[in-house]
Each structure stands twice: as C-alpha cells, then as structure tokens.
Amino acid sequence: MIYSYPRLPRSVSEARLGEIAAAHQGGGLVAVSKHAAFEHERSVPVATGRVATVQEIRALRTAVCSAMSHWIERGTLGADAARFDSELGVVLHHELQIVPSDAAHEDTWSFLTLMVFPDLATLRFPGLHKDRMVGTPRNALRRVWQRQEVLGDWLQTADAPLGEDELVGLFERSAMVRNRRLARITAGIVAAHDGANRSAWARNFYKAVTFQTGMRMLDVLDDAALTDLLTQTAAQVTVD
C-alpha cells in the first residue's frame, strides 16, 4: 500500500459528473470511456507522502480495465451486478495499492471514479446518482474496495458468497466492521449458513452480534472464543 491519489474537490466533482452524464446521454458507455483521464488541474493530493503519477494512474486504468474488459464489452450487467462488484473489488484492491488513510477521503474516490474509471462506475450505476459517482461511502468503487479491504478473500472463497443485501447490512453496522476480525468471522458464518431467506436471517444475526457489543468488548476475545460466541449467537437467530 504505497500510493495516495489526487483528490477532486466536491465542487469540481459535481461539474465533472455533469460532463460524464452529458457524455453518457450522447454516446453511452463508449463516450463515457473516452472521458477517462488521469489528471485534473484542480485536483489536490494529500500534502505529504507518495502520490501516484499520471503514468502510474494510466497504468492503473489499463490494468483494471483489462481485467474487467469482459464486463465493459458486455455493456450492461443485468443480474450479475454482485459478481461485477466482487470482481471489481478484488481488482481495484490489488491494483490501486492505495494507502488506507487516503481511501478514507471522499475526494480521493471522486477522482478515481469521475476521472479514471467513469465507465466502470457508469456500467454499475447507469443512473449516475451522485452518491455513486462522488466518493461518498456508497460510491461505486469505494464500497467494493472497502468490502475487499475488510473481508479480503472471504468474499471470493465462500461457496455461497454474501449477496448485495447481506453485504450492505453488514457494512451498515459500522462498529462491527471496525473490528475486522469480528466482521470476517460474521461474514464467514453468514456465507456458511444454509437456511431459507438467508439475507433476512443475516440481518437479524448482525443485529444480535451488534447488540452484544454494548455489554462486551469483543476485541479482547481470541479467534476461537469469538467464533464460539458468534456460532452460538447464530444458532439462536431466526427469520422474522
């Protein structure tokens, strides 16, 4: 994790989103792809530390787009949005090499989304809603990067990976996600759960786990104790 990226302030991001939207309306995804760029005269990176160069950002786009080319060529995701997210998360996490501190900034993701990967974000969210394009926590790239950062390979190796609702539910519980071990073991139990209406069950499970955190500081439990606790908690959870 070595790079920080240029950041696009909110005012510039909004103007840029307008350009992307106009391009999308006029020429679809192909036109949006042509809008990809690697620098902006009003971008400002964090004051100190290593910032990715234009060349590195270009190489980043090349690498990510080549790994995601089969999606770009399809031009639409249909029912495969979750699979797209999961693949994009892995690729982005691997290629961005972003300092996690930098990834906590909205403007960093605004730059990456609106300048470098406008097409990938548009492909995922063709409605171009501001929350998805500007670097808020719901941003098209930020959320999938964050999922990969927190859950790592859990997202891919499970037989029945977490669906969109299950992931959104987990990440809404920010106190749970901050304890990375807790988030991973929780996700693992959900992925392994074999029952009807798993996402409704998962919601209740997340709630049950979160409710334990008020009384107990789960950070002090070792992996085995934490797994035991969560397994027992899961056993008591039912679907409404």
Partner: peptide
C-alpha cells in the same frame, strides 16, 4: 481484569486495540 485502549477511526472503518 484487563485494561483496554480503543482507538476508533470511524472515517476509515478501523480500530486499534
């Protein structure tokens, strides 16, 4: 008993213990 110091970084979704 144990004393625990938690440094919570909400913007990054990360905590240190």
């Amino acid at each position: 008993l144990e004393l625990v110091l938690i440094a919570d970084c909400a913007p990054l979704g990360r905590r240190f213990v």
